[in-house]
Amino acid sequence: MDTITTAAPNNALRERMLQDMTMRSFGEHTQKDYIRHVRSFAAFLGRPPDTATIEDLRRYQIAQHERAISPATINGAVSALRFLFGITLKRPEMALGLVVVRCTPKLREVLSVEEAARLIEAAPGIKYKAAFGVAYGAGLRVSEIAHLKVDDIDSTRMLIRVEQGKGRKDRNAMLSPHLLDLLRQWWREGKRRGVMLPHGWLFPGRSCTDPISARQLHRAVHEAAEFAGIRKRVSPHTLRHSFATHLLEQDVDIRVIQVLLGHTKIGTTAIYTKVSTRTMQAVASPLDRIFSLMEGPKRTASPPG
């Protein structure tokens, strides 16, 4: 009798992998991504992934390149499969043939101060205006904005508590007086609507017991950008990029910006120096130096005759 195989990881293997990731404090999004990549590999294989060979992994990566899969997706699959075989299945030799693709980092899209003001002003309602204000005024990630609670706003110390941000790290973000005023406007409106629960979400979703979704925030930003006539490709994360870039242009120390953004490595924060206009403007072009040298003698030369 033929054995029927499945194209998805079996439940026992999936649960074991989830347990291994939980023990290592992997975030919810990372866990979902890893399971998704393993499921994709199993679908390619046509049988449970724990029966794979090194040659199967090689064929899978070749197929990914032939399908023009993005480097980020390929590298995500490499990380997931390395974890599956190296940690969960205790077969580290399987991961030796997996190849990481070099990614060329793209220049980040940044709004000007005037564009950021127009985008926030064009927000579809006070809730989204306050959420945009948190993204641009405090530099929070989309997921961090969505999971803010009312009690996370510390108006006494003028701080925003970010609990279990990226990498499951807690940190404090800045709270400016104008941002506090904007949040209070939304809090009063939310109370009037009956959606602002005591100790509840600062930005409730369609149900006041659930937080706003990242998809809702993305849609609101796109709607506001269109209304404001901004032609750049923007997302909620664009406001975070703009926050960091504008601080850098105000000569704020890059290490301070690193802490505010919650970056583990200074190199991640240094990416913003590539889009800072003031950083470029502070450098004298060699062409300007040549022209200054050429013009110098002209000023001191005596007129003929």
Rank of each mutant, 00 (worst) to 15 (best):
R240N: 06
I4M: 13
R192N: 12
T88Q: 07
F41W: 07
V142W: 01
A122N: 03
V256D: 11
N10M: 09
S276K: 06
E55P: 03
I254F: 06
L248C: 03
S25F: 14
A282N: 12
Y136L: 03
H178V: 09
A72I: 10
G97M: 06
R184V: 04
T73E: 06
T53S: 15
A12V: 15
D2M: 12
L175W: 01
S207R: 14
H65V: 12
R157H: 10
I120Y: 01
N172F: 15
A244K: 02
A270D: 08
F44Y: 15
D33E: 14
C208M: 11
D210K: 15
R184S: 09
M294P: 02
A116S: 11
L239Y: 01
G97I: 08
G165Q: 03
S70I: 04
T3D: 09
G167Q: 07
Y60S: 07
I290W: 07
E93H: 08
D2S: 12
S25Y: 10
P49R: 02
I4K: 12
L84Q: 02
F44C: 02
Y272D: 00
I254T: 06
R193D: 12
S235G: 06
K265C: 12
T88K: 05
H29E: 11
P124I: 08
T22W: 08
D152M: 04
K265D: 15
L175Y: 01
D56P: 06
W186H: 05
Y136G: 01
I212N: 00
S302N: 10
Y136Q: 05
T264Y: 14
R91M: 06
Q61G: 01
R192A: 13
F41Y: 08
T209V: 15
A123I: 04
M17C: 05
Q64P: 02
R255V: 04
V162K: 01
H263C: 13
L96I: 09
R39N: 10
H263R: 10
A228K: 08
K298D: 08
T209M: 13
I120N: 00
A95M: 05
G296I: 04
G194K: 09
L239I: 04
I160R: 02
R193N: 05
A173R: 01
T104G: 10
L57N: 00
L111Y: 04
A77N: 08
A77H: 04
S176C: 05
M294N: 14
V162L: 03
I120A: 01
V99E: 14
S70V: 08
V259G: 02
T279C: 13
S213K: 10
K149I: 01
E93F: 07
A77C: 13
M23L: 15
T264W: 14
M94D: 04
G200V: 08
